[in-house]
C-alpha cells in the first residue's frame, strides 16, 4: 500500500497522503517530514467525523474536495472492503496541478480498493502499534515511512527515531527525562496538557511544524529542568514572538489563555453533561451534536465509567479547541457558573 500512496505523493504539490477507516483510524500514510504519524492520526479522526457528516447528506458520495487559502484536501471513497469502509485522503498545497492529481488519485484509488479487498488492511492495522515510533521518524529524506514500513528501515535508524507524539489529541509529551532530541521532560500531567494545548493553538497559525517549535521553545525556557506549567507565561511569550502577524500573535495568546481556563477533563461536570445528569443544551452546535451522540452511546452500553471518561475528555477538548467562539464562552459560563 505504501507504494501506491508514494505514487500520489510524487505528484507536485502533494504533501501527504493517507488511508483511514470508517472509524477515523489511520490505516497507512506517506508524507513529507512534517506530516508525521501523530498528525496523520489526528487528521484521520477529524476527517472521519467529516465523512460521517457528509454521509448524512449524501450516502453515495465518491469524492470530496476542500479548498483552503493555502492548499487543498481531497478525499476519495474507497468503499467497503474486508468488513470495513476506507477513505483515501490527499493533502496538497497551492502548487497542486488538479489534473495530474485527479488522475493519480483515481489510479491509486483503484489499486487501493484491490489491495484492501485482498486483505491488506488488517495486516497493516495489526502492525500499527509495534511500529508507531518508527513511523514518526524524521529521517534524512523528505518522506516519512508509514505503518508496516519499518521493515524497510535499518535498525540503527529505528533506534534514533523520534518518539511517537500520538495520543487522543494527537500530541503527547514524555514525562521522563531524556537526552533524545525530541523528548521533552515535563514536571507533571498539567504541564503536559499545557504543552499539548499550546502546540495545538500554535498549529492554527504555523501548521504542523508547531510541535517542533514548541519543543525548541521549551528547551530555551527550561533548558536544565523538566518543563513546569509555572513557566507557561514565558513559553507563551517565546512562541508568540515567532508569529509575525500582530493580529495572529494576539489571537494565539488569547486562545491559549482561554483554553487553559477551561476546567480539566476530570472535573465532574463534564461527566454529568455526557451522561445527561445535567440536562444542558449547548448553543455551540458541534457540542450539541456531540452530546446527543454521547448520551445515546452511554445509555446504550450502560454507565461504563471508561466510556463516560472518554466522552467527558472529548467534550472538554471540543470546548478547548473552540474556546474563542462566543457560543462556547456562553456555554462554559452556564455550565460552570
Amino acid at each position: 500500500m505504501e507504494t501506491i500512496l508514494q505514487a500520489v505523493l510524487d505528484v507536485t504539490g502533494v504533501g501527504a497522503t493517507l488511508v483511514f477507516d470508517g472509524g477515523g483510524r489511520l490505516v497507512c500514510h506517506r508524507g513529507h517530514a512534517i506530516y508525521d504519524r501523530a498528525l496523520c492520526e489526528q487528521i484521520s479522526g477529524t476527517l472521519g467525523k467529516a465523512v460521517d457528516t457528509i454521509q448524512l447528506q449524501q450516502e453515495d458520495w465518491e469524492s470530496v474536495s476542500a479548498r483552503y487559502n493555502d492548499g487543498k484536501l481531497l478525499l476519495r471513497n474507497l468503499g467497503a472492503a474486508g468488513g470495513g469502509t476506507y477513505v483515501l485522503a490527499v493533502v496538497a498545497d497551492a502548487t497542486l496541478n488538479p489534473s495530474f492529481a485527479t488522475v493519480a488519485i483515481r489510479v491509486a484509488a483503484n489499486k487501493l480498493k484491490k489491495a484492501l479487498g485482498s486483505g491488506a488492511a488488517p495486516s497493516v492495522l495489526a502492525a500499527a502499534p509495534a511500529h508507531a515510533a518508527a513511523s514518526s521518524t524524521l529521517l534524512a529524506g523528505s518522506s516519512v515511512q508509514a505503518v508496516g514500513s519499518s521493515s524497510l528501515l535499518p535498525s540503527s535508524r529505528l533506534a534514533d527515531s523520534r518518539p511517537a507524539l500520538a495520543s487522543s489529541s494527537g500530541l503527547s509529551w514524555s514525562q521522563t527525562s531524556s537526552v533524545g532530541l525530541s523528548r521533552i521532560a515535563v514536571a507533571d500531567p498539567a504541564s503536559s496538557t499545557y504543552l499539548s494545548r499550546t502546540a495545538k493553538e500554535l498549529a492554527r497559525h504555523v501548521g504542523p511544524m508547531a510541535k517542533v517549535y514548541v519543543e525548541e521553545a521549551v528547551r530555551r525556557v527550561s533548558p536544565d529542568a523538566p518543563f513546569s506549567i509555572s513557566l507557561g507565561g514565558k513559553l507563551l511569550e517565546d512562541l508568540a514572538g515567532q508569529i509575525e502577524d500582530s493580529g495572529d500573535r494576539m489571537r494565539f495568546r488569547q486562545a491559549v489563555q482561554l483554553a487553559m481556563q477551561i476546567p480539566a477533563a476530570d472535573h465532574p461536570r463534564w461527566a454529568e453533561l455526557v451522561t445527561g445528569k445535567v440536562p444542558f443544551k449547548p448553543s455551540f452546535l458541534a457540542a450539541r451534536m456531540f452530546l446527543a451522540s454521547a448520551r445515546m452511546e452511554v445509555g446504550k452500553r450502560g454507565a461504563n465509567p471508561e466510556l463516560i471518561k472518554k466522552y467527558a475528555a472529548g467534550l472538554r477538548d471540543m470546548f478547548a479547541e473552540n474556546a474563542d467562539s462566543s457560543n462556547v464562552r456562553q456555554d462554559l459560563a452556564k455550565v460552570f457558573k
Binding site: 498528525l39 487528521i43 467529516a50 457528509i54 447528506q57 449524501q58 470530496v64 479548498r67 483552503y68 484536501l73
Partner: peptide, 29 residues
C-alpha cells in the same frame, strides 16, 4: 445544521494541517 457541523470539522482539519482559511467544500456522487 449538517453543513455547519461539516464546516467546523473541515476548518479544524485545515488548522491541523496549516492550510489556512476554508473557502469551499464540495462532495459528489
Amino acid at each position: 445544521a449538517v453543513t455547519g457541523f461539516l464546516t467546523s470539522t473541515m476548518v479544524q482539519a485545515g488548522e491541523q494541517l496549516g492550510l489556512g482559511a476554508l473557502r469551499t467544500v464540495s462532495f459528489a456522487g
